[in-house]
Simulated scan of single mutants.
Amino acid sequence: MELRQLQYFITVCEELHFTKAADRLGISQPTLSQQIKVLEDELSTPLFDRIGKKIRITEAGKLLQQYSTQMLRDLQNAKMSIAELQVNQRGTLRIAVLPSDLDYRMGAIWIAFHQLFPNVRLEIVPTIEIHDMVIEDKVDIGIGLSGVLDRRMVQVPLSTETYSLFVPSGHGLTQRVEIELEELLQLPLILYPVGFVGRKLIDDCFQSKGWKVQTLMDNGSAASQLQLVKAGIGFSIHPHVLLEDLPDDQLIAIPIVNDAPVRSIELLYRTDRYMSAAAQMFIELIQKHFAHNTKTSSSL
């Protein structure tokens, strides 16, 4: 049994189609079929049920998929560990971040990390599919909303953040210490479009009261939303700590009372992933950043 055969086998498991798997591997379909047949002969059991052009993984195939996937991942981790020793912290660190104010707030983290590891390339991936990208090994670390506990991952709680109404500094509402959730229904709101995680949190909060949010404008950029607020076009709703990361004397954040939207943030990575010194330092920077914001926010 060769590693190459296992890689072929795993690709067929993922595609469930020999021609597609062969195209992905860059080999001919007959060559792929032959290698799978050699593997089946060695194990004395079929790994796939062939039903016309469709295939299905057998129970034996599922077992081999489980063990071979772990074997190849362990090999990749070993290569990464050795490469780290050889090239003195080079390579790429892939980070998935929720596309909202969250990635907008993390500029200081990217700068601090680059100063510590100038030879490590950061690949920032904005996505709402944080969990899936981590599990499928498409990124090394994910930062997003807390989810259901998954034994395949390490899930590190970072913060719990309440939302506030963001208003321009010259507006009459800036005299308010807090604002009722129901009052927001009468305001021209500039929010993320439907389908964004941040928008769903807000919509769910209002819907729990039997209310529906009406927006003046839907805008997918946190930076653009804040510019529109400063221009007096409307108001927006964001985590209160956003102003801690981006102090701006043209904006005021008024806490929302009576069941304000709340979100919990977590950092996650696979339990079986090799974490380089650079990755471990990135995690430490993230934890310190959110711990500082949580402490500052609680003192407001």
Rank of each mutant, 00 (worst) to 15 (best):
residue 10 I to G: 05
residue 2 E to K: 12
residue 20 K to V: 06
residue 229 V to D: 01
residue 217 M to R: 12
residue 220 G to K: 14
residue 155 Q to K: 08
residue 84 E to Y: 04
residue 296 T to G: 01
residue 28 S to Y: 03
residue 85 L to M: 07
residue 78 A to C: 06
residue 191 L to A: 02
residue 107 G to L: 07
residue 97 V to C: 08
residue 97 V to W: 07
residue 176 R to Y: 03
residue 216 L to M: 12
residue 19 T to V: 14
residue 37 K to G: 06
residue 208 S to R: 15
residue 286 I to C: 12
residue 26 G to L: 09
residue 139 V to R: 02
residue 173 L to Q: 05
residue 187 L to N: 04
residue 296 T to F: 03
residue 30 P to L: 13
residue 39 L to S: 08
residue 25 L to F: 10
residue 71 M to Q: 12
residue 83 A to N: 15
residue 224 S to Q: 09
residue 41 D to Q: 15
residue 37 K to F: 04
residue 254 I to W: 05
residue 154 V to P: 09
residue 61 G to T: 11
residue 33 S to E: 15
residue 78 A to Y: 00
residue 33 S to H: 11
residue 1 M to Q: 06
residue 230 K to V: 09
residue 266 E to T: 03
residue 218 D to P: 01
residue 183 E to I: 01
residue 226 L to W: 09
residue 130 I to W: 01
residue 95 I to C: 09
residue 170 G to I: 04
residue 132 D to V: 08
residue 20 K to Q: 12
residue 152 R to C: 00
residue 193 P to Q: 05
residue 257 V to R: 15
residue 20 K to S: 11
residue 170 G to Q: 10
residue 220 G to R: 12
residue 58 T to V: 15
residue 61 G to I: 14
residue 215 T to E: 06
residue 186 Q to F: 04
residue 141 I to M: 10
residue 130 I to H: 02
residue 4 R to A: 07
residue 248 D to M: 09
residue 75 L to E: 13
residue 110 W to F: 15
residue 4 R to V: 12
residue 32 L to V: 10
residue 192 Y to H: 14
residue 230 K to E: 11
residue 177 V to E: 03
residue 41 D to S: 13
residue 168 P to N: 02
residue 41 D to L: 15
residue 38 V to G: 00
residue 39 L to R: 08
residue 145 L to P: 00
residue 44 S to W: 01
residue 160 T to Y: 01
residue 11 T to M: 13
residue 128 I to Q: 12
residue 138 K to F: 04
residue 88 N to G: 07
residue 92 T to F: 03
residue 185 L to R: 08
residue 183 E to S: 10
residue 6 L to H: 08
residue 251 L to E: 04
residue 278 A to D: 04
residue 300 L to A: 09
residue 174 T to W: 07
residue 119 N to T: 10
residue 248 D to K: 10
residue 33 S to C: 13
residue 236 S to N: 11
residue 90 R to S: 06
residue 27 I to W: 07
residue 225 Q to F: 06
residue 226 L to K: 02
residue 55 I to L: 08
